[in-house]
């Protein structure tokens, strides 16, 4: 049982899995910036296609990708529906209802924004589907995150699913005492959740007590220049990927800001 938790990482042996996690982190950042630089619907659709191509290459199964998209699609639809209601600029006007004016360019602007949001939301999965939590934290530390902060992050990722199961189990334990979580008004409901969350927090803090002893007994903080069993190292393929990514960002940026090309 995982308490309904989904660890996004899917082990496989693909080009993207083998890529240095630092490169993948940088890739997510670069592609996100690119999504902001692009302002044409066509180029944004192209970027979205590129992201899905990468996800496909990472062997993200259809069901995983669909899960990832579930929340994004709702979000995108809302943007498309709500945007024209608040943006009366441009012609032709398609409909007018009192103060609300629906124009054709406004609809396209909504769609463009929705696609950009789609890019920004899905680009994360290139990293999350292909990188284990351990590699992720290691990469962040290598990129300059302090080791103790990295360790804190690693601990929190480690305990996330554990606490997910814990919450479900405590919910059951309290339901067996007649607790009905979805009953009553705001005050009653708040108190109901307290009955679930207090045991959860107390159990979690007990875990923290044990954990801090374990850290001490394993000489946490004994020396600043700690070493690692497995060091990250950039291979030629990583440099190639990095170069391609930088080019992907720089070319459109030059086109837009120096040559003033609409892209």
């Amino acid at each position: 049982m995982t308490g309904g938790f989904v660890d996004l990482f899917t082990p496989a042996d693909t080009f993207l899995h083998r890529l240095d996690p630092r490169v993948k982190i940088i890739a997510v950042l670069l592609l996100s910036v690119l999504a902001f630089i692009l302002s044409n619907l066509d180029s944004l659709l192209l970027l979205l296609g590129f992201i899905f191509l990468l996800l496909f290459l990472a062997r993200a199964t259809l069901s995983r990708t669909l899960f990832a998209l579930k929340f994004v699609v709702r979000f995108m639809v809302l943007i498309v529906v709500l945007w024209p209601l608040f943006d009366p600029s441009g012609t032709p006007v398609l409909a007018e209802l009192g103060p609300v004016k629906i124009t054709e360019p406004a609809i396209w602007r909504g769609v463009t924004s929705a696609v950009r949001v789609g890019c920004l939301a899905t680009v994360w999965y290139i990293l999350m589907f292909t990188t284990s939590q351990r590699d992720l934290v290691r990469a962040l530390v290598k990129l300059g995150l302090r080791f103790d902060y990295g360790l804190t992050l690693a601990i929190s990722l480690r305990f996330l699913p554990t606490f997910g199961v814990l919450i479900e189990s405590i919910k059951d334990a309290q339901r067996a005492r007649g607790l009905e979580l979805s009953k009553g008004g705001l005050v009653r409901r708040s108190k109901n959740y307290v009955a679930v969350l207090v045991p959860t927090i107390v159990s979690a803090l007990r875990t923290a007590d044990t954990l801090s002893l374990a850290l001490q007994s394993r000489a946490y903080g004994a020396r600043a220049d700690r070493t690692y069993l497995r060091e990250l190292s950039m291979r030629p393929a990583d440099y190639v990927a990095l170069t391609v990514l930088v080019a992907l960002l720089v070319l459109p940026a030059v086109a837009k800001f120096l040559l003033h090309v609409q892209i």
Partner: peptide
């Protein structure tokens, strides 16, 4: 089994 899951 774990009383701490019920006590708050």
């Amino acid at each position: 089994q774990n009383p701490d899951h019920q006590l708050f």
